[in-house]
């Protein structure tokens, strides 16, 4: 599932009794007691990360699986911190808080919507300023699917199906939402 030279160069990071991580130059794979995460910061390798998960699930066909989240993050970079503040005020009106807080400002906004594709789950958007980067705001779109873990082995099979059939829709949805957030300050 991975090129031999990447296996040779992989870093295995072990940090916690219940957390293990494996790192390639295009991927971070994390395993916790009840979660498996594949993270990539290279758009050229997003599908490779997906395929590695598909391959992993093929080995874990009998693992009861509750949910699948596909998350796209993008950093919006503004010219000044004032623009970031303005975005915060668009999302959370400042005057709602001035009677109880001194100089209120948006620290994090999460908005959740229902799925429109008939699947069980939700779409959640998180917008949050980035530490030390006064002009940057993280925008994350979480495409979340709930699964029935009791229905073995179909829960992992269902994930593989979702990853394969919904991949492009998920990416398009994330792009659409992020583009919407970008328009809030135009």
């Amino acid at each position: 599932m991975i090129r031999q030279e990447e296996v040779d160069a992989a870093k295995i990071e072990i940090i916690h009794p219940e957390v293990a991580a494996f790192q390639l130059d295009w991927l971070l794979l994390q395993v916790t007691r009840n979660r498996l995460g594949f993270h990539s910061n290279r758009e050229s390798h997003y599908e490779a990360a997906r395929d590695l998960l598909i391959g992993t699930l093929d080995l874990l066909r009998h693992m009861p699986t509750r949910a699948l989240g596909v998350n796209h993050n993008l950093v919006l970079e503004y010219e000044t911190q004032g623009h970031c503040n303005q975005l915060g005020r668009e999302l959370v009106p400042e005057n709602k808080w001035t009677t109880v807080l001194q100089r209120p400002a948006m620290a994090r906004v999460e908005e959740q919507g229902e799925r429109t594709d008939g699947q069980d789950g939700y779409i959640r958007v998180r917008i949050e300023p980035i530490l030390d980067e006064g002009t940057k705001v993280l925008c994350e779109v979480n495409d979340h699917f709930n699964l029935s873990p009791d229905n073995l082995p179909s829960s992992t099979v269902a994930i593989v199906k979702l990853l394969n059939e919904e991949w492009r829709n998920i990416a398009e949805r994330a792009t659409h939402i992020i583009q919407y957030v970008e328009t809030l300050l135009r």
């Binding site: 594949f38 009861p64 998350n71 993050n73």
Partner: peptide, 15 residues
């Protein structure tokens, strides 16, 4: 931060 860039995360009930 729970996910960076693109992340796919299935959650398991591990026996």
């Amino acid at each position: 931060s729970p996910y960076s860039e693109m992340a796919v995360t299935p959650a398991f009930d591990i026996p």
